[in-house]
Amino acid sequence: MANQEIRSPLPGTFYRRPAPDQPPYKEVGDSLAKGDTIGLVEVMKSFHEVKSEVEGKVVKFLVENEDPVQAGQPLAEVEG
């Protein structure tokens, strides 16, 4: 089965951690359930959780922590 992508719902800045001193929500290789948070997008100083609508295993992240992202931009690849 083809890999699936998790896309950013909003434009802004992508963060993989809930706070700078905490571990990332997900690492490559972690299993993922529907509704799991994979990161945050900061838009206009407010933070929004990015939740997975798919389940599987995180294959790779397509953007770095703190990268600017567009709405709809793929953030991570998931193996179903």
Partner: peptide
């Protein structure tokens, strides 16, 4: 101004 793309990185 008309046509301005408001960046998402700063306050609203």
């Amino acid at each position: 101004y008309p046509g301005y793309a408001i960046p998402p990185f700063y306050d609203s």
